[in-house]
Design a protein around this nucleic acid. Structure first.
Lengths: 158, 158
DNA sequence: TCTTGTTAGTTACAAAATCAACTATTAATT
DNA sequence: AATTAATAGTTGATTTTGTAACTAACAAGA
């Protein structure tokens, strides 16, 4: 099983990113799955509501780039478990405002603390500067952060 | 929709890694999907065989950390499309050796070139040093590379 | 040889993701 | 006002994944 071609799959960014994402999600996944029977999209919705207090399904979808059907199903499950409450917007009765119930808040706080611990654990493998750069590059690749355009910056019109 | 909690989901590494992985996979995915009707695990298997020439399903699974059922199905599809050929190992008739057919080789070369172009495009957003560090950290997080003990490396020379 | 255990790979069934079509409501156009 | 288009969210059909059980082949020990 020796290489006959020098292309390195293990250096191909999309592959590498996927592997790193999968691997680094495992431990946290175990937590929300075992402790709360939650799915990936469920904790994501939970976290958004925990962080922002009140949002519509649409706003969550836009911010997390999760498709509306996933949001819909995640919200349905969270609502069934009384982790979120829903209330219609009286100005626009198509959309509804979501927020955490006390039980949802409790679950959020628990998972958030897990997340913080786990994140710190992952970050510990590198220096603070490296981690900062890593997050920056990942935000960049994720399309969360605008590319820092070297050209524009040097032209002085940014 | 203003933050009421200072936890940043967008900095949480598992979330960030997933988003970056998804986003950075889109363009390449479009390629193997549209052009060859392939699935993620199929191009991964194809690439492994393209790079290593001949492997068993087990070897591919170990190297790429893909579960054996995924490999099995990916190989079945690739074999049905005459992209890979299978031959039993006569010493151990449980396992079989997989290799690309000429058609598979052609598909591999096409996709490999796409991958190279695309990877370069992604890398272009950063300096070469940054990209090298990024890959290193991702390999680290993916469990491909052993952690380097920074105590040793960072203690002496800044 | 005859268990017993292990391994390579497949298959079956359940869980989840994807995509399209749908309802209800609001906005825009005539 | 009536018609058409757009939007928020849900539902259903299909595809893909995940998990467990399975078959076939080998291995080791009694």
């Amino acid at each position: 099983m020796t290489e006959k071609d020098d292309f390195s799959l293990q250096d191909f960014l999309p592959f590498l990113l996927n592997r790193a994402a999968e691997e680094s999600s495992l431990a946290f996944q175990a937590h929300y799955k075992n402790r709360y029977g939650m799915l990936r999209n469920e904790w994501r919705v939970l976290f958004h509501l925990g962080i922002f207090g009140q949002m519509t399904a649409k706003e969550i979808g836009e911010r997390a780039k999760i498709h509306k059907t996933k949001i819909s199903r995640a919200v349905a499950k969270l609502a069934a478990r009384r982790f979120v409450s829903r209330s219609r917007d009286e100005k626009d009765r198509r959309s509804e405002h979501l927020r955490l119930t006390p039980a949802g808040e409790a679950a959020y706080r628990d998972l958030r603390s897990q997340a913080q611990t786990y994140d710190a654990q992952l970050a510990q493998r590198f220096t603070p500067q490296e981690v900062a750069l890593l997050r920056h590059m990942l935000r960049q690749l994720a399309g969360i952060e605008a590319p820092r355009s070297h050209d524009a910056e040097h032209r002085g019109d940014g």
